[in-house]
Design a protein around this nucleic acid. Structure first.
Lengths: 139, 139
DNA sequence: CCGAATCCTTGACGATACTG
DNA sequence: CAGTATCGTCAAGGATTCGG
């Protein structure tokens, strides 16, 4: 049994009403919507202001137009961004964060800044780990 | 051209030295290490204290022992948790967050709390979206 | 310019069986 | 108890082609 203890020193606070590993787990919610390879990058890019389709495509080099289109559609569906069509010729389509999308993007900022400062150290630790494993194997 | 403007009102701050969509992009770093289906759940669980293999397996119902083993190995390799073997019979293995892992877990906390409060609204918005699309299709 | 449709590869994940 | 090994499934994503 997991028990119903509420440790006061855990970083998630003492209010832990949700079942962490059920479908209502916020971690699951976040991963389901942002866990793919590109969504976070798109949201981040739009944090600088509205952006058109091909502009995003150029910004995020490496993404295909199929995937970009798919993810944009999903994010619009999720209410995280808006899609505005201007009936020029040819048509122009602009994407922008909703307030929800902006709030969410703000939340990931500290995480990304931490990653920038510490992930390189993690990668270095990996190398050390590999060396240690190799040594353990040969010794 | 993307220009070198540094908008003062963007949530990521004006210091934007990294190339957001290159390999050094922190968003990529985070997603590469935590973007899978389970890592975040495991880290979150370990935030409550050290935990043994089968205990984690029971906590996170739905995960297979193969995947749990894989992800734990990766997270250990990343320096986010430690693996301690006690040579009892049978052997017991305990996993615990490193300081890095704890720091990272703290960073995702605000995001998860926000998700808990707002994702249900997003899901509701999806339903509305579906209805609207259906109406547009039939009308 | 903005996308949809198609085909294909890759690998994450699950189920089962087995080991120390 | 704590894994490893093997096989099979499924969906994300890339390349290419086509339409409005």
């Amino acid at each position: 049994m997991v028990t119903n203890r509420k440790p006061a020193d855990n970083p998630f606070g003492e209010e832990q009403g949700f079942d962490v590993y059920s479908d209502s787990c916020p971690a699951r919610l976040v991963l389901d919507h942002l866990g793919d390879k590109w969504a976070l990058l798109i949201l981040h890019r739009l944090a600088f202001g509205p952006r058109r389709f091909n502009a995003l495509r150029r910004d995020i080099s490496g993404i295909s137009q199929k995937v970009l289109s798919q993810v944009l559609k999903r994010l619009e569906r999720d209410g995280l961004l808006t899609r505005t069509v201007t009936p020029t010729v040819p048509v122009t389509v602009e994407y922008a964060l909703t307030q929800m999308g902006a709030q969410l993007t703000e939340r990931v900022c500290p995480l990304l800044r931490w990653a920038e400062d510490n992930m390189p150290a993690i990668l270095g630790a990996q190398d050390a780990y590999d060396v240690k494993q190799a040594a353990a194997g040969t010794g």
